[in-house]
Design a protein around this nucleic acid. Sequence first.
DNA 1: TGTCCGATTGGT
DNA 2: CCAATCGGACAG
Length: 208
Amino acid sequence: MGNVVTGGGFSRLPRSFYRRHGLLVAPELIGLLLVHETGEGTTAGLIVEVEAYIGPEDRACHAFGGKVTRRNRAMYGPPGTAYVYFTYGMHHCFNVVVAEEGVPHAVLIRALEPVIGLDLMSERRGGRLPLTTGPARVCQAMGIDLRHNGADLVEGNLYLALPPAGLSRRFEIRSSRRIGVDYAMEAREYPWRFFAAGNRHVTPNPDN
DNA sequence: TGTCCGATTGGT
DNA sequence: CCAATCGGACAG
């Protein structure tokens, strides 16, 4: 996996980890720690559910057809940056941009197992449950919004890290069709959702 | 500028 | 099952 940069509290993943095909990176995100250090405090959770969105050929991907718009521009940025978008007039979704710069692969973070800063997460969620199941809930609990669009995960306050020994666990990884992309014709069948089998924070789904 | 719609969520 | 709620995408 290459060198891991230390600093901050956790072992941050290096850019080389992200500079690979999205379908290779996506399942490897399961079990890693998503960390956000802010003035309000630090929140972190183990990633337990993701979806890969793979470039111009993927009809469910915002970069389908190779189009570049103001919303999706960050998808074409360097590996190890954030693609955050606003949807349904009220929700944010957070993706990790991967692959070579200019190649729009992104991995949507759909669910976390919260491990640090649960009180802060709950406060940000207005006390509602579930806390971190679903991409918009992850963003709300972690304090992620449009200001993080394009943010560098290798340098900034928002990053992915190897979980420290006490939090590290082994997950059985399964895959299924992606959620919410029924409009995407043939792409709706692609098994590009990856999740930790049996984990209670994963989105309940018939394919589980 | 006008219209349509969403990689969702929460309440009925 | 459906309303919320509005920026983005695209046609004109």
